[in-house]
Design a protein around this nucleic acid. Structure first.
Length: 409
DNA sequence: TCGGATT
């Protein structure tokens, strides 16, 4: 966030460092004084100022890292001896979702002449996938771009600029999703665990945005797909050293899938939707109950605009409320229930952002319950009031806001 | 009978 009247904050730039890559994350920018260089900085600042003004603070979107440097990359003799790697082609990761190819070119063009520039987009939706490629004419400019733009803060993102690996089929689908990690495990320990299977390109442990604590899940991108396959064979279901629970290792979802799902969900809920869901008419029947509920003040009990402030400032717990919406517990689902039934049941009531059927790890059958996240309180309340007691097949569902208490004896 | 977590 920047103050009014100064769209550009110098602290969001990393200063160029004589030492090179890694030492200047918190160093203030010092403007060089020679005229051509100074103009470059000014040009870059204008671009960034324009972007920071133009790009609203929207929700953070998925990015994909395909680069060539791990975070604690120590340039090894093996790497530097590789003459096949391009010295002009860069991959830029963690771009703000709304940044266009033109803005990318403008930003990197302030360093030197660009041979080509490509922002990678989702094939179907055209949405940015948050990364792109910049190929310079001169290797010197590529190096300079890494030194001056890697780590640049744009919006809520810190961009990563590194040499791109040569495009190849063998490096595709080499990204792993890891869950069940001990909360105490560090990124370094995660890399140590996986490095026995190959060269790690990127690694990450996701953290809770409020507490900063590990969420026990993360990503490992290997250089080669076969390395990732071997890591799954070797580590999935295994206990890391000193861990009490086994970890799950599988191929990561494509980040564009979630975007597509969200878009489909939005289409589904658009006012112009022509074809109602199979259960919509049945759900409609319950809206009378909803009116009664509203008359009893269900909606006004938690004025939506104040919920976030209440929970964040006072730290109080409201059943079902999470940072991203209202979580609903659905009980008495059949063993063969799947996510689509939850979409069908809850979709007609409003914005559904997530559904989940909880399955047994071994049998993959539904354990009898699931969760639905809805954005708006009143729609979630309506769904609960309507669907609690709903007869699905030969089962009567129980639907309520999710609580924290465990019901196992 | 109240999870998993998808950068």
């Amino acid at each position: 966030m920047h103050s009014a009247g100064s769209a550009f904050s110098p602290r969001s730039l990393r200063a160029p460092s004589a030492a090179g890559l890694k030492t200047h994350r918190h160093v203030r920018v010092c403007l060089p004084f020679s005229k051509p260089v100074r103009n470059r900085w000014e040009g870059r600042m204008q671009v960034i100022a324009a972007m920071e003004t133009q790009l609203s603070n929207g929700p953070t979107c998925n990015n994909t890292a395909h680069g060539s440097n791990t975070i604690n990359n120590c340039s090894s003799p093996i790497d530097s001896g590789n003459t096949e790697d391009s010295k002009t082609n860069l991959i830029v990761n963690y771009l703000p979702q709304s940044m266009t190819q033109e803005e990318l070119k403008s930003l990197f063009g302030s360093i030197g002449e660009i041979e080509s520039c490509k922002l990678v987009r989702d094939k179907i939706t055209g949405q940015s996938l948050g990364y792109g490629f910049v190929n310079y004419v001169e290797p010197k400019d590529a190096e300079k771009a890494i030194n001056t733009l890697n780590g640049l803060r744009l919006q809520t993102k810190t961009i990563k600029v590194s040499y791109a690996r040569p495009s190849s089929a063998s490096i595709r689908d080499a990204n792993l999703y890891v869950s069940g990690l001990p909360k105490s495990m560090t990124q370094k320990e995660l890399e140590q665990l996986f490095s026995q299977y190959g060269r790690i390109i990127t690694s990450r442990i996701l953290v809770d945005q409020v507490t900063g604590m590990s969420r026990g899940v993360g990503f490992i991108r290997f250089d080669k797909r076969i390395e990732a396959e071997e890591a799954i064979k070797g580590l999935n279901g295994q206990k890391p050293p000193a861990a009490t629970e086994p970890i799950t290792v599988k191929f990561a979802n494509n980040p564009s899938q979630k975007t597509n799902q969200a878009i489909l969900s939005q289409l589904y809920h658009s006012p112009n939707r022509r074809y109602p869901a199979p259960l919509a008419q049945q759900a409609q029947r319950f809206r009378l109950d909803n009116l009664l509920n509203m008359a009893y003040g269900v909606k006004s009990r938690f004025p939506p605009m104040t919920i976030d402030g209440m929970t964040s400032l006072a730290g109080i717990n409201i059943p079902g409320h999470t940072g991203t919406g209202w979580c609903i517990f659905v009980y008495n689902l059949a063993p063969d229930a799947d996510e689509s039934i939850l979409w069908q049941m809850f979709g007609p009531f409003g914005a559904v952002t997530n559904v989940k059927v909880i399955r047994d790890f071994n049998t993959n059958k539904c354990k009898g319950f699931g969760f639905v996240t809805m954005t708006n309180y009143d729609e979630a309340a309506m769904a609960i009031a309507s669907l609690n007691g709903y007869r699905l097949g030969d089962r009567v569902l129980q639907v309520s806001f999710k609580t924290n208490k465990m019901h196992k004896a």
